[in-house]
Amino acid sequence: MSADPVPDLPPGVDDGTLLQKPVDRREALGLLMAGLAAGAAAASACTPLNASTPEQRELKLLEWQEFTQKHYRRMTEAERAETIQRLERLAKIRHNEDATIATTDAQPGVLFGYAFNVSKCKGYRRCVEACINENNLDRHQDTQYIRIFEMENGVVNLDEADPTYQHEVPLEGHFYLGTQCFQCANPPCVPVCPVGATWQEPDGIVVIDYNWCVGCRACMAACPYWARRFNWSAPDVPPEEVNPNQHYLGNRDRKKGCVEKCTFCIHRTREGRLPACAEACPTGARVFGNLLDPDSEIRWVLAHKTVFRLKEELGTEPRFWYFSD
């Protein structure tokens, strides 16, 4: 009882498994519902109608399947593999990029934490730049996950800080404090989502299923640290600058109308590497590691330095600490 109006297999689709996938009741209902809705919207990009060339037909079909795909956390292993294959193919068709999208799960015994040395940061914003390149952030809207606040010595007040400074750094008599998503242990952004498109992984990273997000932006209103960004238009990354090393929950291709945020470079850190911002920092102000490993640098900082966190009174328990030498 498939409700999917699947056209004939267009030439050029080498993998027939995409088309022969079994459709269970839930999926069929989903397809039916979506079909009704999509039908109402004439010239919708989701229906495989009006497609002339084989490539266009394939694109329409893949987009349709993308539109009706399940929530990431409800997918079986096989469905995940199929989804990844589809997304990689879509990235190829849409942007001619050869992306590899991982679905690496959280590693057992790992809980990520971050510490930021306020006295070492000189405000060079190399981390911001590295983040943009690493995470394929939209160049058109100038999306940035990291914000560096320039503050006068003697004042710790973000209201009076300058996050948009454009001058030579470091500025005499000033210090610098960087923010990004703090991957709170008690994240206020997660429960507000009406469709459960954002959640916390066992290693502490708060992630978003970009395909499931409906774009209501309730999470942006709920975040006390202004960590979330919205795709107000279709993101634009020059093909030659795309980072092909991607993760489903991280830096893969986003579409307009979904929310995104820092994931501590999930595609790197789950492979045992540092986040791009920590690696790019020329002053060593950024310390990243596994909070469950007693020999990690982050544990050393927490044990030996006076640390503080932003807005402790909200009870969000950020896994991001500040300290000074």
Binding site: G30, A37, V195, A197, V214, G215, K256, G257
Partner: peptide, 11 residues
């Protein structure tokens, strides 16, 4: 919500 009212089937 941007342009995709039919996305709301997910609710």
């Amino acid at each position: 919500s941007p342009g995709y009212p039919w996305k709301w089937w997910r609710l």
